[in-house]
Every structure is written in C-alpha cells, then in structure tokens.
Nucleic acid binder design. Structure first.
Lengths: 234, 234
DNA sequence: TTCTTGTCACCTAGGTGTTAATAT
DNA sequence: ATATTAACACCTAGGTGACAAGAA
C-alpha cells in the first residue's frame, strides 16, 4: 500500500484548483509528489515510476471579470473560475518518469519517503530532456506505478500481475504557463521555500511552525476540510 | 580498463604534493576522482566503489622556516616540505564508499564519466554519516574497485575473480585539517570553481579557457611535466 | 609550536514568482 | 484578449579557503 505525503497541503491546493507551471526548460511540481510505501518484499527489485493522464478531453480558458470588481487591479485579469474552451488539443507524447533510484530493493524503497523531486513538467513537444510533456490549460491526473522486477525468464508473461497503480485524486492539477488563480499563487508562495522571497506577511516562523495537523496553512484561505485519510484508488 | 579524468590536473597537484582537507562534517575531494570505464559487459550489473589505503606507516609534520625568509609574512609558518614525525597513528575504520548509482548495468556506467563527487573525507573517528575516515597528517592512496554482480547462486565462491582494482598513483594525497603548502592552496583556488571568491588575478576566462592539453594551469607554477599517460596499476 | 575547530564572506548551482515583451 | 516566453531579483542548499580562537 502507498501513503501520500503532505496530503494536507495537497488537499489545500486541490480545494483551490491546483495549478502547475509548465515551461520549455521544465519545471518541478509543487507540492512534490512523495509517498511512503508499505508491504513490499524487502529483497525483491522494484521500479517506481509516474505518468500523467488527462482528466477529461477539454481545453480550459480563463474568464475575464468586468473591470471595477473586488479583485486588486494587478490581478484584474485573473479570476478563479475556469471555462471549458473546447475539445482537448492533440495528446502529448505519453512519457513516463522513472524514479532515478530505480531499480532498487523493496527494503530500500520502504525505509524512507520516496520523493519525485527530479520530475519536471514541460510544454515543449520536442523536449529531449526526458521531461513529462503536458498541454497547457489542460487538466491532468498524476499516477504512481510500482513494477515488480520478475526474476523469471518469461517475466513478460506476468507483466499484468507484476505492477500496481496508485492514484491520488487530490494531486490533480491544471497545467498552466502562468498562474491563473491568485489564491494558488499565494499558497505556493506561502508553502514553497524557494518562493520565500515573495512573502510579505509574517516573515517569521514559516514553515518552522508548520507541523502535520497544524492547519490552516493560510488563515485567509482557511476553510472546512476533511481530516479523513483518502486511501489511493487502485 | 579505466581512464582517470582530469589527469593533467591531478599531475599538477601531485607534483606539488597533493593535500586534501578533512573536517568533522566531511569534505569533498578536489580534484574529484572521476573515471571513464571501458570493456564492461553492457548487460551485467556492477558495483563501483572506492577506498583509501595508507601509503606508508608514517606520521608527518610541517617544518617551520626561520623568520625573515622569502615566504610572505602571512604564510611564514607554512613551508612546502614535510618531515616524518614518527609511526602512523592507529588505523582508522577501513570504510569504503559505494558509488551511489550502484548497482547499475555496464552500459550505464560506460556511457558517461563516473564521478565520485559525493564522497567526503572526515577525521572524525565516530562519524556516522558513512564518510571516509582518515588520519590527518598521513598519506593515502585512493583505490577504485569494480565488482561484477555475479548472478550465480554460489557467487561467493567466485568473489576473487569478480572484482578488479585500479590504482592511480597521481591521486595520492596527504590528509590535512588546514593546507600546509601554499602552492597547493593557490592551485586549489585557481582550479576549483567553488573557491573563485579567493582569486585575485585574472578574474576573467578561468576555467573557460582551460581545455584538456591547454597546460600550464598556472603559469607561476608551470614546470616540466610528463605528457605520457600513466595506465592504472592493477 | 603545531594542529584542529568553528564561523564567515564569497562562490556555484539551481528553484521561485514577477514582470515586460512577444506571440497567437 | 489571452497565452507564452525570457530576463530578473530573490531565495535554498551547499562547496570554498581565510581567519581567529582553541587544543594538544
């Protein structure tokens, strides 16, 4: 079984509608996809990998509010609602990202959190850095796969039973080239250490005071949330 | 077979008497031990590792020149000659450093330079970070080992024939807690990008203009050198 | 006297959102 | 009007030797 790390943070982003930046050079995800793994054979070899599947066949576009609304001027053109703009663009090359430690023994994978922080997203269809290629303004569902490296000679025959897929719906996101929802931007700034330079309030004690269960992350965006753990689909 | 990368730089250090800093927290080597590997079975698994053996059973000490010599004042206490100070201190725990990509296929190891830049040296006998423990003021010879991962059940029987050791004498060094030879310090500053802040001459075009064969590295320390490649002992 | 330790300014390397300019 | 790009300031993270203070 697999447990998503930083689930509370993922939930907070998901409630706002997570956005992930895609760039030509490739951009990491934030939050980073990280999991704890249980129940592997400690002595067996496994490959760990991720891929991304479209949530729907739609292209989205941003709605433009009329001038003079409550939104601050500089964000006048960034509302928080999405409109369907039509059918999805042609599918991108369906790449996968192998965790760079693959293959490794079950004991190795289980003894600490597995982090996909080397994974990068790009919108460059011709990318040759091995990054994940996505269409901007489309919604994606990350998937996590565990492949058992079968030592048997005719291992291909058992391919079907030698892997398991785990899907955490709270990690869905919209690929964008620039943030659309200002609340997403603010939550990224508040929670990503690399964006610390853009924090303007409470320069102290973040994320020092952030402990698991110490929600809300941002009081301004606090809302009801479900503390019940959501086990992965499978 | 194995080819030492940056051999020209290693040679230049070696002619001066290479020194490597050891600290409690662990310090990387510079130059970094890097090799190109040839002749592996592309499909077989190999472990790559390094260890360090004493060159002799001596402890060294620094000689103090009388005041008023040619050496600049601030380095008055740092000459370039070593004296034997007696028998070696008790041997340190004989640790090895596995290249973090181990195990991997021969094809993987051969397709690019293998760099041991994660390896760190420490003088802390109680180190629990897995660093290489060395005695300061002692001389060491780095060794590089290639271990073939034998798929046979009784692989232990063949341990003797399943590994090869490569020794490059030009990578010998004295472990120190502070540099003793000012020329070593200057060559480190001139050639290590992380020490760029201490360069005072020619802030431009270093190491941009440094290409293999473009010796001398530092005109002030240029000397006759042997362009003949020195194959590894074995 | 010699060697070791800890702190520091100054780097490399690279991950952030911002912004202005450009493309569609 | 909307989406994308590239340059940028500002961070994290960590590798340098210098230096002053301490230890042996």
């Amino acid at each position: 079984s697999v447990q998503l790390e930083m689930k509370a943070l993922w939930d907070e982003f998901n409630q706002l509608g997570t956005e992930m930046i895609v760039t030509k050079a490739g951009r990491r995800m934030f939050p980073t996809f990280q999991v704890k793994i249980f129940g592997m054979d400690p002595m067996a070899d496994y490959m760990l990998l991720m891929d991304f599947v479209p949530v729907d066949d739609k292209r989205y576009r941003q709605v433009t509010p009329s001038p003079g609304c409550l939104t601050p001027r500089r964000y006048a053109f960034h509302s928080s609602s999405w409109l369907v703009a039509g059918k999805a663009d042609p599918a991108t090359p369906g790449r996968v990202h192998y965790h760079p430690d693959s293959p490794a023994k079950g004991a190795q994978w289980m003894k600490q959190i597995v982090s996909f922080d080397k994974l990068k997203l790009t919108n460059n269809l011709l990318d040759d850095n091995g990054h994940i290629i996505l269409n901007s303004m489309h919604r994606y569902q990350p998937r996590f796969h565990v492949v058992y490296v079968d030592p048997r000679k005719d291992s291909e025959k058992y391919a079907e039973e030698n892997f398991k897929t785990f899907v955490f719906e709270e990690t869905r996101f919209t690929a964008v080239t620039a943030y659309q929802n200002h609340r997403i931007t603010q939550l990224k700034i508040a929670s990503n250490p690399f964006a610390k330079g853009f924090r303007d309030c409470d320069p102290e004690d973040w994320p020092r005071n952030h402990r698991p269960g110490a929600l809300p992350l941002m009081s301004a965006f606090a809302r009801s949330r479900n503390p019940v753990s959501s086990p992965a689909h499978q």
